[in-house]
Amino acid sequence: MISLIENLPPHVIGINISGKVKEEDYKKVLEPAIEKQHKTHDKLNCLIIYDTEIANFSSSAMLEDLKTDFKYYNKWNKVAIVVNKDYLKNVIGVVSAIIPGELKGFSPEEIEQAKTFVK
């Protein structure tokens, strides 16, 4: 499930990912939020909180995630990913080297630092 996080600055998209994640979560929640943000801001800042395992993503959700990432490839400015798995934080470090903008991983205990990073 993908839900939006409220009470963030207007230039920051907040996303909470939990439980089972399906393609329609991207199409009904995430993509409209990104498109709305993109209409008013040239660059995208995003706070993503992963509260689920990768195994909970359907294959169509993973494909939709990639399509969304690449659709806005040159628009990402700062992306903070809060995740409780050390190996995923390491993957974030590798991915951040190949995409434009800044991508940084945080542990759940560092949520306030993640918010500050995307502000």
Rank of each mutant, 00 (worst) to 15 (best):
E35M: 12
E31L: 13
I49N: 00
M62Q: 13
E53P: 00
Y73P: 04
L4G: 00
L8Y: 01
Q37C: 12
K85D: 15
V21Y: 02
K28R: 10
S3K: 10
K115I: 06
F117M: 07
K28W: 04
S18C: 05
Q113W: 13
Q113T: 08
G105V: 02
I92D: 03
E24V: 07
L8S: 06
N7A: 08
N90M: 15
I13G: 01
G93Y: 09
K43D: 03
P9H: 00
I5P: 01
T68E: 02
M62R: 13
E112K: 09
I92H: 05
I2T: 04
F57H: 11
A33Q: 07
P9C: 03
N74E: 14
K28Q: 14
A33T: 01
E102T: 12
A80P: 03
S96G: 15
K78A: 07
A55R: 14
P32S: 06
V91H: 00
A61L: 03
I49D: 03
Q37P: 04
S58Q: 10
E35F: 10
I99Y: 15
G14V: 07
F106N: 05
A97V: 12
E102R: 10
K119M: 12
P32Y: 02
S59F: 12
I49M: 08
V95N: 00
G105W: 06
N16G: 11
V79H: 07
C46M: 14
V12E: 00
A97M: 15
S60D: 10
D25N: 10
I98Y: 09
S107I: 10
H38E: 13
T116H: 15
S18L: 09
D42H: 10
E64R: 08
D69S: 14
T40S: 13
L88E: 13
K27N: 06
I98R: 09
F57G: 06
K67R: 14
T116E: 15
F117E: 00
N84P: 08
H41T: 08
V21N: 06
L4I: 08
A80L: 05
H11M: 09
K119C: 08
K67T: 10
E102L: 10
N84T: 09
E102M: 11
W76F: 05
K119L: 15
V83M: 09
D51N: 13
